[in-house]
Simulated assay, not measured.
Amino acid sequence: MNYDNACKYLAQKYPRQFARWLLSVDTDDIQVLKTELSLEPIRADSLTFL
């Protein structure tokens, strides 16, 4: 499993804990959108709104 897949899995499965670990932010208002963003210069497999 590469890092991208591992991070994607953890962010989707445990979004609150992932945000706390990555950003040092503790919030209950988290939305994970399983959508792709392919507009240049940003590319993303999914979006998480805090």
Results as ranks from 00 to 15, higher is better:
C7E: 10
V25K: 13
Q31Y: 04
L39I: 06
K13N: 09
A11K: 04
L23W: 05
I30D: 12
A19V: 09
P41L: 07
D45E: 15
I42Q: 14
E36P: 03
C7L: 14
A6Q: 11
Y9G: 00
L33T: 08
N2K: 12
M1W: 08
F49V: 15
K13P: 02
D29H: 12
N5K: 11
F49C: 10
D26G: 00
F18Y: 09
S38Q: 13
F18V: 03
V25F: 05
D28T: 07
T48N: 07
L22F: 08
L47W: 07
L50Q: 04
T48G: 13
P15A: 01
A6F: 10
Q12N: 07
R16C: 02
L23A: 10
I42E: 15
D28R: 11
L39C: 04
L10A: 03
A11F: 07
W21C: 07
L23T: 02
E40L: 08
D4L: 04
D28S: 13
D28W: 02
F49A: 14
T48F: 11
Y9P: 01
L39D: 08
Q17M: 03
R20S: 11
D4E: 08
N5C: 00
S24D: 15
D29P: 01
P15V: 10
Q12D: 04
K8W: 00
P41S: 04
L22W: 06
S38C: 08
N2G: 15
T35P: 02
Y9F: 09
D4I: 01
C7Q: 12
P41Y: 01
W21E: 11
E36A: 11
E40G: 04
R16D: 06
E40Q: 14
E40T: 12
E36F: 10
D26V: 05
N5D: 11
P41D: 05
D4P: 00
E40M: 11
R16Q: 14
L50F: 14
A44R: 07
A44T: 05
T48H: 10
P15Y: 03
Y9K: 09
P15G: 04
D45I: 01
N2R: 12
R43P: 00
S38D: 10
L47R: 05
S38A: 05
Y9W: 06
T27G: 03
Q17W: 01
S24M: 07
R16T: 07
S24N: 15
Y14H: 13
D26Y: 03
Q12Y: 00
V32I: 14
T27Q: 08
R43S: 10
T35M: 13
S46G: 03
Q12M: 01
D29W: 01
Q12W: 00
L33H: 13
S24A: 13
D45G: 11
D45L: 04
F49W: 13
Q31C: 03
N5M: 05
S46V: 07
R43E: 13
L33E: 11
A6M: 09
E40I: 09
D4T: 04
D45T: 08
V32F: 03
T27A: 06
Q31K: 12
W21F: 13
N5L: 05
A6R: 09
